[in-house]
């Protein structure tokens, strides 16, 4: 069984840009240990000389003409999706 420590959980949360709520940490520690323990069964498989599969389309090097495609979306529509906009620019909180 893979043992994930509390520090491991906090490190993974940091790698994942997640600031976890204190109440979630214990549960995640147990869940991650169980899930990683479960998937370890793959170690039983002999994969010597087996090529990994990253995609299943059989397609390779898909090309298209280097032309502008009009997606029919205006700058205003895209800016309207942001939490805060000032003078056509996305405003972010001050962090320095």
């Amino acid at each position: 069984m893979t043992q994930i420590s509390r520090d491991d959980v906090l490190y993974l949360a940091q790698l994942s840009s997640l600031e976890l709520d204190e109440t979630e940490i214990d549960g995640l520690q147990a869940d991650l240990s169980n899930i990683l323990g479960y998937v370890q069964q793959l170690n039983k498989l002999d994969t010597t000389n087996v090529e990994p599969t990253y995609q299943v389309t059989g397609l390779s090097s898909v090309w298209r003409d280097d032309t502008v495609i009009d997606f029919g979306i205006s700058r205003q529509e895209l800016l309207a999706l942001s939490p805060e906009v000032v003078d056509n620019q996305i405003k972010v909180p001050k962090v320095l």
Binding site: V39, L42, L45, T47, V50, E51
Partner: peptide
């Protein structure tokens, strides 16, 4: 290892 197992 998972991607290799996927091939199998």
């Amino acid at each position: 290892q998972a991607q290799k197992a996927r091939t199998l």
